[in-house]
């Protein structure tokens, strides 16, 4: 996938890690601007679709830089990439950041998380998401069945549930997480609303609703849409 139009601002003071991440992300098709401190971050963030930010930086620390960036560009997702793993640090970071990845990390995991964040922020506007026999145009709120060439029409709530799962692509979500993410209110014990919606959703999306391929059930845990 060519993503040269997507610029990522990467702030990391460690030269070896910086070089490696820049190289890996460039190989994955992103344009990477690498800064060794956070002083010029706000200036470079304007053209970027995502910011990867280390915490321990010379001068301004990552938390301060992140807060400034979020204030200046609230729509740009920030991914904290830090060797600081304490709960306090994570909680502080997640007050403004959209994700927090700890070192040592696997580059595939970093790439997957970047993709999720970019998708969530709507950076992949033109590209449809290919899932089994489906092409999903999230921005246009359109889903095409490539087998039949027909558009699949979902109700508002069905589309919200499906896009919520897509924004957490590959991630297993419990029924409580999905309900609270879509309805925006606490899940009530024993509420079957979500299960009913998912059943109707499968009837529209799946080739064979009795053997779902798109929305996978993880027994005893929840649901997942695999990339």
């Amino acid at each position: 996938m060519i993503r040269l139009d997507i610029q990522i601002l990467y702030i990391e003071d460690d030269v070896e890690i910086g070089k490696w991440v820049q190289l890996d992300l460039t190989e994955r098709g992103y344009k990477v601007i690498w800064l060794k401190s956070g002083e010029q971050a706000v200036e470079h963030a304007a053209e970027s679709r995502l910011v990867i930010l280390d915490v321990m930086l010379p001068g301004l620390d990552g938390f301060t830089v992140g807060q400034r960036l979020k204030k200046a560009y609230p729509d740009i997702p920030i991914l904290m990439l830090s060797a600081r793993t304490s709960i306090d640090d994570k909680l502080e970071g997640l007050q403004f950041a959209d994700d927090y990845v700890t070192k040592p990390f696997h580059p595939d995991e970093l790439a997957a998380r970047i993709e999720v964040l970019l998708r969530r922020s709507g950076s992949y506007t033109a590209e449809p998401l290919e899932l089994k026999h489906l092409s999903v145009y999230e921005q246009e709120k359109r889903i095409m069945n490539r087998d039949t060439g027909e558009e699949i029409v979902l109700t508002g709530k069905q589309f919200q549930i499906f896009t919520y799962l897509l924004r957490h692509l590959g991630q297993i979500l419990t029924k409580e997480q999905i309900y609270e993410g879509v309805w925006g209110e606490p899940y009530l014990d024993g509420d079957k609303t979500l299960m009913v919606h998912i059943r109707y959703l499968r009837e529209k999306l799946e080739r064979d609703p009795s053997a779902p391929e798109v929305i996978e059930t993880i027994r005893g845990v929840g649901y997942r849409v695999r990339a």
Partner: peptide
């Protein structure tokens, strides 16, 4: 700091 100092070289090794 200790965590950072230990994890940073680990990240480099992994890279």
């Amino acid at each position: 700091n200790l965590s950072h100092d230990l994890r940073t070289p680990l990240t480099v090794i992994r890279s």
